[in-house]
Amino acid sequence: MFQNRAEAFALALPAALFVTLVFLVPVVALLSEGFHLNGSWTISAYVDFFSSSLNQAVFWRTLKLGAIVTVVSAVIGYAAAFAIVGLSPTAKGRVTGLVMMPLMISPVARTYAWIVILGRTGIVNEALHAIGLTDAPLRILFSETAIFIGLLQLFLPLMIISLISALENMPRDAVPAARVLGANWFQVFWKVILPLTREGLVVGGTLVFTGSLTAYITPAILGGSKVLMLETLMYQQVSVSNNFVAASVIACILIVMSFAANILLKRVATARNKIRREGAAA
């Protein structure tokens, strides 16, 4: 560790200054717009925003989709992570690579694929029609279901990767020990694996949840102009209605929700750990 403070500041200052000027100041200015109307500080813009039933619906839809995507990705994520951790080292490396591959592909391309699959003449509708289950094509595209599928595909890799490393960091003998003590698989999961992998679950969950809350591409392509989420609503407010106050309100809501999710989930993780540590000490 070097002691020279002047040098340290000179090295760190350009980056910090750059982010402050190009990022923090404009963002804070934008956020303040929603609190500052006609020359005075007020929260009336927020009252207005939430008094609209359309906005309320979008707000709750965003939260709902975020929560569902997180829970479903956790369930699938555990199954997938178990399967992958059980593989031989070479196979594990390859499958992990395949799971991570979608992360390298443009989200636009990944989301676009669902149009081909879920559209009126897409694979799903053609297949359902062919086996005689439906007469007319189902309207899957431009619905919450389509957004849910798109978000799940977008963020599932993050959950799987987090859970793989959590499972690998678990003490090797924990599961056999629990089995020897007479626990069934269900008990092993709830009493041993879940507590021991909670941190990985929280990391993955935070990434998936905040990612879903703040998604733009997926609702824009798969939700269309009717089924909006907060970011697509914000885009509409700016580009269609020119309503910058509403955009500022949405921006603030998005940021508050992301931060709250981060803090809340971190709390959950540390609180559980504390209980575990105290339990171990006792």
């Binding site: 990022f23 200015a29 703040t214």
Partner: peptide, 21 residues
């Protein structure tokens, strides 16, 4: 400060830059 741009959604940053720069 340096890692802040990862936390704030991009659409907000884009709009902020449009409006204020």
């Amino acid at each position: 400060v340096v890692s802040a741009p990862i936390i704030v959604p991009g659409i907000i940053v884009g709009l902020a830059l449009l409006r204020y720069i």
